[in-house]
């Protein structure tokens, strides 16, 4: 074997372990497609209102969805919004929601959890009690309260989700750190006079971060579902905003078609709904694969 830098070798090995798993391949392919769509949204579906591309274009106001045609290849949903456009730009929305919420939640949660777990004592006690209080707040109720107070909007939903999302991360990282803190290599670093901050950054977090990665990837899915749900019940994105949940909501009255043809408006529900399902599935498959790949029991030797 030619000499490679060990980090590269290790990285390759991790990749190998991840992609050994078929679910990782499916998950990452799906994610790759979604990411491509999100990235090239302006090319795939050129916006009609360049300063507000998330607004779905619509021709007319007829509440009845129209089937796929030359002009609207995925058809139109209630209010004549173009489903294709909505799906493409909705991908961006989904990534926006997921990344913002999970990013904030993971950052806040990891910081608080690390501090709490490593310092212990009163700091830990206080932080854990605060977390307990946050645990008592139901996400949906908080979201509704914020929306009632500050008005409807996707940004409010994201803030509400981020406000409660971190509590998971605190618990996970704290329990990881509690076990790591007593590990011999951390003790060894301590007797060598390494500072606390360095111990956290170099010894503890690199070993504790994997459960967070796994959780974050699962969370990307579930946050998008929650946001979609809020949009569906009319608390999230405003009407006409390119958001999958919002599009399902628009088609709410057309889930079952007229008597005799119950599947008549399938495209209005199945296309945006399918996007949500696939998006969540992609992240869950990735999370599963990561879990298998990072399982310490299965690591070599």
């Amino acid at each position: 074997m030619t000499q490679q830098h060990p980090r590269l070798r290790e990285f390759k090995f991790t990749l190998y372990r991840i992609f050994r798993n078929p679910s990782a391949i499916i998950g990452f392919s799906l994610l790759f497609i979604f990411a491509g769509v999100a990235l090239f949204a302006p090319q795939i579906a050129p916006p009609k209102y360049p300063h507000n591309p998330y607004l779905m274009p619509h021709k007319g106001f007829s509440p009845t969805p129209k089937p796929p045609s030359q002009t609207n290849i995925f058809g139109t949903t209630s209010g004549q919004y173009d489903i294709f456009y909505g799906v493409v730009w909705g991908t961006r929305t989904a990534f926006k929601i997921g990344m913002f919420v999970v990013g904030i939640a993971a950052f806040v949660g990891v910081t608080l959890g690390a501090v709490s777990g490593y310092l212990g004592g009163i700091v830990d006690e206080a932080l854990m009690r605060i977390t307990d209080v946050i645990w008592a707040i139901p996400t949906l109720v908080l979201a509704m309260a914020i929306i009632v107070a500050f008005g409807r909007g996707l940004d409010k939903v994201m803030i509400a989700l981020a406000l409660v999302g971190w509590r998971w991360y605190v618990r996970v990282i704290r329990s990881e750190i509690l076990t790591l803190r007593d590990q011999d290599f951390v003790q060894a670093a301590k007797i060598m006079g390494v500072s606390d901050l360095k111990i956290i950054l170099r010894h503890i977090l690199p070993n504790a971060i994997y459960p967070v990665l796994i959780m974050a990837s699962m969370d990307m899915g579930s946050m998008v579902i929650t946001a979609s749900f809020l949009s569906f019940v009319g608390l999230g994105a405003p009407k006409g905003y390119a958001d999958w949940g919002q599009m399902v909501a628009l088609a709410r009255n057309y889930i079952v078609g007229p008597p005799g043809d119950p599947l008549k408006f399938w495209y209005a529900i199945v296309i945006p709904g399918g996007c949500i399902v696939l998006f969540v599935l992609a992240w869950n498959l990735i999370g599963d694969a990561l879990r298998d790949a990072f399982d310490p029991k299965l690591r070599r030797r």
Binding site: P6, R7, Q183, D184, F185, Q187, A188, A189, I191, M192, G193, V194, R202, H203, P206, N207
Partner: peptide, 24 residues
């Protein structure tokens, strides 16, 4: 200084030998 019982747990699994020894 101290040398611990189990060398598997007393060395940080995510650090290179070079860094492990250089750290102190």
């Amino acid at each position: 200084q101290m040398v611990f019982q189990d060398p598997t747990t007393s060395l940080n699994p995510r650090m290179l030998v070079k860094h492990i020894i250089a750290e102190p």
